[in-house]
Design a protein around this nucleic acid. Structure first.
Length: 916
DNA sequence: AATCCGACATGGT
DNA sequence: ACCATGTCGGATT
C-alpha cells in the first residue's frame, strides 16, 4: 500500500461505527498488514499483548481499548501501553488506544504522541505510517492535500486508461503524462488565482457533456488556446477567447486528449473540487509520478531524494553560511541590503534534477531567508521606507533532466513554488505580484547531462554572481552501465582521467561539476554512492578530480538511502562538497565532516572522507613491505556444475564411490565464516582420464563446458573451455592456507581469517595465503590490519570487501627480525589455541561483538600489543585513529622514498645515455 | 591474467 | 516485509 491507500483505508476505518473487538484488526488491515497475518492475529496465535483486550502485532502496533467497564481514559490506557513489558521484544512502531470517541497514540521511536477525535484519525495518517512499516515523512504528514490530490489523480488516471486501453501502450505514456501535467496546471491555476476562479472547472462542467462525452473536444481546443496568444485563436471556438495564454511551453507540442467515460468524468470533477493551492511542490513532483503505471511508480519513487537528505546537501553548501551572515549583520541595514543583493545573484544548478526536488527546496529556503531579511529591514528602517519585492527569480534555477516528463514536472514545480512563495510574501507584506503570462521559467533543459555543455545550461558566474551545483545523480556501477552510458563516461573522462572505466556513473557528474567550478565563484555538492570514496575508485578518480585547485569542503559519510517510497533502493550514500582551495595557504576555511547526526570540524577531508592528509592508495601486485604474495581464490565460472552441496556429494558417492578422491571441501566467504559444508570436484590434469571414467563426473564436466560456452565473457572464457574439469585457478595448499573472506560483516572487531589444511579448496570469495609463514596470521588478525583494510579496501554496502592488491600488498609493516617473527608466530598460535577450544563454534559466532569469548579477546589484545609495540617503539596504540594515522604515515613515507629512488635511477640512466 | 565491484541478492526472522 | 550479511561472474586493467 502506498500512503494514499493508507490514507483512504484509515478514513474508511474512522467513519465506521466503533467496536473495540473489531477495530484493532481493521487497523491492521488499514496499515497494510496481510490478510493472513490479521487472521492469525485474530485467532490470538500471534497476538503478543498482555493487556486486557489488547492486540499486539510484532513491529507494527500495540492496541488496547479504553472506556469499557473501568472507564479508563485514553491517557491512562496509553500509559499502560507504554509500560507494557511485551513491547521490548515485539517492538511495536505505534501504540494506540481509543474509547470510540477520542484516540491517543504514541510513536516510541520519536517520543511523539497524538491526541485527536477518532473520526479525525485519517487527517493524521502520517503518524500511523510506521505501523505500516513506513518511515514517517514530515512533509506528507503535515500535508494531506498532496495525498488526496495524488489519490484523485491516480483514480482519474486509472479510469482513463481503462476507457482508452490503447493509452496503456508505451507509445502513449508520454502524451498521457503530458496530458496529466497540463491538467494539474489548470487545476492549480484556477485555485490560486492564476486563472480566474473556477474558470477551468466551469469549462469542464459546462461544455463536457452530461457524461463527459464531449470533454476531449473541449480540452483539445482549450489546451490549444492556452498555447496561443489571444489574437491568434480565430480558428478555435469562441468560448476559448477568455482562456489565458500560458507561456513557458507548458502547452506546446502535441496535444492529444483521451476520451472520458462517466467514471473518468466524475474523478475529474472530484479533482476540480479539491483545493489545490496548498499542495507541496517539493514532493508533489515525485508523487505525481506515482500516478503513472506501477513500473514507473517503483522506479521513480525509489530514487527521489527525501527532504532531509536534500537539506544535508544544501545546508552545508550555502544555506548555513548565508544564515550566519544574516545573524552577523542582524543590526546593520546596509549589510543586510547587500545580502539581499547577493541572494538575487545566486544561481542554483542541478544537473540531474528529476522532477526538481532539490531546486524547489533550495528555492524555498532562499525565499524564506530573503523574507527574514526583509522583515528585519522593515523593523530597522520602518515599513514604508523600503521597496518590497523578491530579488530571487526562478530563472536563477537551472536543471538538466533526461526524462522530459520529469523535466516538465520540474518546471511546473518551480512555478508553483514561486507562486506559493509570492503568496506568503503578499501575506506578510501586503503586496502581491502578477502571475501571468508565466514570466521567465526555470531553466530546465531536457537532455543528457553528460553530453550537454553545462555552461550553456547554467552560464558561468559573472561578477558578483555565485553558482551552486547540487543534486543526486544516478548511481550505476561499471558492470551495470549500458553502451550509451559507457559512451557518456568516455565523453566525460577520456583524456582527463586514465582509469575511468571502472568508475560509477555518478563519478561523471562529480567530474563535470569539478571542472565547472574550478577557478570560479562556484561550489558543488552532490549525493553519491559511498563506493566513490572507497577502494580503487579513490585513486582512479580523486587525484585528477581535485588536482591542485580543488578541495573537499564538507562531507556526509556513509548513510543508508531512505525515502518514503515503499521499495527503497539498496544503497549506501555519501554527500561530498567541492570548492576551490583558498588562494593563500594560510587561510583555512572551516571543513565539516558529518557522521550520522554528529559533526566534526576537520583540518582536511581526504578522498576517503577521513580527517587526514590527502593519501591515495594504489593497487600493488606484490607487497610493498616484504610480505608474501596473497592470491585470488579459485574462481569456478561453472554455473555450479563443479560445486557440490553436501546432499549432492552424498548422492554422487552413492552412485560412484570411486569418485571420492576427486572431491574436496570447498569454501567461499560464507563457508569459511559460518563453517558451512560445501564440496567441489578437484581433478588434477594427470588424473583427468581416470575421473572421466566416472559417469556423473563426466556429465558435470560436460555441463561446465556448456555453461562456459554460454557465458557472456567469451574472450575471457576461451581458455576455460580448454579445461572444463577445473576452476579457472587450480591452486591448493601443500600444507596449509590462510583464507581471508573477501566479504565480511563490518561488525566483527577482527577479520575472520581461517586457517585450513591441504584438503580444503578456496573459492574466489576468499583471498589466500598458501603455505605462508605462521607469523602472517598474527598480522592478518591484528587490529592494525582490520583498520587498514577497512579503510583502504572497498566495501559492499558498509561491509568489508577485502582485496589483496589494495589491502594486503599495501599494508605497512615494520621490518621484522627473526625474533619478531617467532614472537608473532607464538602469539598467532595462542589465538588459534583459544579458537580450537571452541571447536564447535564458527568464526561468525566467535567474532560476534556481543558474544565474543573473553579469552579470545585477551589473546587478540595480547597479539595487538605485541605487534603494535613493533610499530611504535614498544608503545601500543590507544585507538583506531592513532593506528590509522601511523599506518598512513608509514605508507606515505614509503611512497616518498620509492619515488626518490625512481628519480635517482632515472637520472642515472639519463646520465649514462648522455655519456654513451 | 587477475580482480573489484554491486541505486545488489538472498536467506532468515 | 525488513534486516543482516555475503554469491557470483561481468567488465576492466
Amino acid at each position: 500500500m502506498n500512503p494514499t491507500e493508507i490514507y483512504d483505508a484509515l478514513s474508511d476505518l474512522a467513519s465506521q461505527p466503533f467496536d473495540d473487538s473489531i477495530f484493532p484488526y481493521d487497523f491492521a488491515l488499514a496499515t497494510d498488514a496481510a490478510k493472513a497475518t490479521v487472521d492469525k492475529l485474530r485467532k490470538g496465535a500471534t497476538n503478543r499483548s498482555d493487556l486486557p483486550g489488547g492486540v499486539l502485532l510484532s513491529r507494527r502496533f500495540h492496541f488496547a481499548p479504553a472506556g469499557g467497564t473501568e472507564q479508563a481514559t485514553v491517557d491512562v490506557v496509553l500509559e499502560q501501553l507504554k509500560a507494557s513489558p511485551r513491547n521490548k521484544q515485539a517492538k511495536p512502531a505505534i501504540l494506540l488506544t481509543t474509547d470510540g470517541t477520542m484516540l491517543a497514540a504514541f510513536h516510541p521511536a520519536s517520543g511523539e504522541s497524538l491526541h485527536c477525535p477518532l473520526d479525525e484519525m485519517a487527517k493524521h495518517f502520517g503518524f500511523f505510517l510506521p505501523a505500516a512499516g513506513k518511515e514517517r515523512y514530515r512533509a506528507v504528514e503535515e500535508n494531506p492535500v498532496d495525498v488526496q490530490a495524488t489519490g484523485k489523480l491516480a483514480k482519474l488516471y486509472d479510469a482513463l486508461i481503462r476507457h482508452n486501453p490503447e493509452w496503456k501502450n508505451p507509445s502513449h505514456t508520454h502524451i498521457m503524462n503530458q496530458f496529466m501535467m497540463r491538467l494539474i496546471f489548470c487545476l492549480f491555476s484556477e485555485d490560486v488565482g492564476i486563472f480566474p476562479k473556477d474558470q477551468f472547472s466551469r469549462l469542464v462542467l459546462d461544455y463536457g457533456g452530461r457524461e463527459g462525452e464531449a470533454l476531449h473536444i473541449v480540452l483539445q481546443a482549450g489546451f490549444e488556446a492556452m498555447n496561443l496568444p489571444k489574437d491568434e485563436r480565430s480558428h478555435l471556438p469562441d468560448w476559448t477567447a477568455p482562456l489565458e495564454y500560458v507561456n513557458g511551453g507548458l502547452f506546446a507540442g502535441d496535444i492529444t486528449i483521451p476520451t472520458f467515460d462517466v467514471t473518468a468524468f466524475r474523478y475529474l470533477k472530484d479533482a476540480c473540487a479539491l483545493d489545490w493551492k496548498d499542495i507541496n511542490p517539493d514532493i508533489f513532483g515525485s508523487m505525481i509520478q506515482s500516478v503513472a503505471d506501477t513500473g514507473i511508480r517503483a522506479e521513480l519513487g525509489m530514487h527521489y531524494t527525501s527532504v532531509p537528505n536534500i537539506r544535508k546537501v544544501i545546508d552545508p553548501l550555502f544555506l548555513d553560511g548565508l544564515r550566519s551572515e544574516v545573524q552577523k549583520d542582524w543590526d546593520k541595514p546596509a549589510a543586510l541590503q547587500k545580502l539581499l543583493h547577493k541572494l538575487g545573484h545566486i544561481h542554483i544548478f542541478d544537473p540531474a534534477c528529476g522532477s526538481g526536488n532539490f531546486l524547489v527546496i533550495a528555492y524555498r529556503q532562499l525565499r524564506e531567508l530573503e523574507m527574514t531579511i526583509l522583515q528585519r529591514l522593515a523593523t530597522l528602517n520602518g515599513n514604508d521606507t523600503m521597496e518590497l519585492f523578491s530579488t530571487i527569480p526562478i530563472a536563477n534555477f537551472h536543471g538538466i533532466e533526461c526524462a522530459d516528463f520529469a523535466a516538465e514536472t520540474a518546471k511546473l514545480a518551480l512555478f508553483i513554488a514561486e507562486y506559493q512563495a509570492n503568496a506568503l510574501f503578499a501575506e506578510r507584506f501586503g503586496r502581491a505580484i502578477a502571475p501571468l503570462p508565466l514570466r521567465e521559467a526555470a531553466h530546465i533543459v531536457c537532455g543528457n547531462a553528460l553530453r550537454l555543455d553545462w555552461e550553456a545550461v547554467c552560464p558561468p558566474p559573472g561578477d558578483g554572481e555565485l553558482v551552486y551545483i547540487i543534486g543526486n545523480p544516478p548511481f550505476l556501477g561499471s558492470t551495470y552501465q549500458n553502451a550509451e552510458q559507457k559512451a557518456d563516461m568516455a565523453i566525460t573522462f577520456s583524456g582527463a582521467v586514465k582509469n575511468y572505466k571502472g568508475l560509477d556513473y555518478v563519478a561523471a557528474w562529480f567530474f563535470k561539476a569539478a571542472r565547472y567550478i574550478q577557478g570560479r565563484q562556484a561550489e558543488a555538492a552532490l549525493v553519491s554512492t559511498n563506493s566513490l570514496c572507497q577502494g580503487q575508485a579513490v585513486n582512479a578518480l580523486w587525484p585528477d578530480l581535485l588536482g591542485e585547485a580543488l578541495e573537499i569542503s564538507f562531507a556526509h559519510t556513509s548513510f543508508k538511502w531512505r525515502n518514503n517510497a515503499s521499495h527503497n533502493a539498496a544503497v549506501i550514500c555519501i554527500i561530498v562538497g567541492l570548492r576551490n582551495r583558498p588562494e593563500t595557504k594560510t587561510t583555512t576555511i572551516l571543513k565539516r565532516l558529518f557522521t550520522g547526526e554528529t559533526e566534526h570540524q576537520a583540518t582536511n577531508i581526504n578522498a576517503y572522507l577521513l580527517d587526514a592528509p590527502d593519501v591515495f592508495i594504489e593497487k600493488a601486485s606484490k607487497s610493498l613491505f616484504g610480505l608474501p604474495v596473497m592470491t585470488y581464490g579459485n574462481k569456478p565460472t561453472d554455473n555450479g556444475h563443479l560445486i557440490l552441496s553436501p546432499e549432492e556429494k552424498d548422492r554422487l558417492l552413492q552412485q560412484a564411490p570411486q569418485a571420492e578422491p576427486f572431491i574436496r571441501r570447498f569454501m567461499g566467504s560464507k563457508e569459511a565464516i559460518n563453517d558451512l559444508e560445501r564440496y567441489c570436484l578437484w581433478i588434477d590434469d594427470a588424473e583427468l582420464e581416470q575421473a572421466k571414467q566416472i559417469p556423473p563426473i563426466a556429465e558435470r564436466i560436460e555441463a561446465t563446458y556448456a555453461a562456459r560456452l554460454a557465458m557472456k565473457d567469451a574472450r575471457n572464457n576461451q581458455k576455460l573451455l580448454d579445461r572444463p574439469w577445473q576452476f579457472r585457478e587450480h591452486d591448493a595448499p601443500q600444507n596449509h592456507a590462510y583464507l581471508v573472506p573477501s566479504i565480511s560483516s563490518e561488525r566483527r572487531p577482527y577479520l575472520p581469517v581461517l586457517r585450513v589444511k591441504s584438503d580444503t579448496i578456496s573459492s574466489n570469495k576468499n583471498f589466500v595465503l598458501y603455505d605462508a609463514p605462521e607469523w602472517c596470521f598474527a598480522l592478518l588478525v591484528s587490529r592494525m590490519h582490520w583498520v587498514w583494510s577497512g579503510t583502504v579496501c572497498g566495501r559492499l554496502k558498509t561491509d568489508f570487501q577485502y582485496s589483496n592488491t589494495l589491502g594486503w600488498h599495501t599494508f605497512p609493516v615494520p621490518t621484522l627480525t627473526e625474533a619478531d617473527k617467532e614472537a608473532l608466530k607464538q602469539s598467532g598460535r595462542a589465538i588459534m589455541r583459544v579458537r580450537a577450544s571452541y571447536f564447535d563454534k564458527s568464526l561468525a559466532e566467535l567474532y560476534d561483538p556481543d558474544k565474543m569469548p573473553a579469552d579470545l579477546w585477551e589473546a587478540h589484545q595480547a597479539n595487538d600489543a605485541l605487534l603494535e609495540g613493533l610499530y611504535n617503539k614498544g608503545q601500543p596504540f590507544t585507538n583506531d585513529t592513532q593506528r590509522l594515522e601511523h599506518l598512513f604515515r608509514r605508507y606515505a613515507a614509503h611512497v616518498a622514498q620509492s619515488r626518490k629512488k625512481q628519480t635517482t635511477r632515472k637520472k642515472r640512466s639519463t646520465t649514462k645515455k648522455q655519456e654513451g
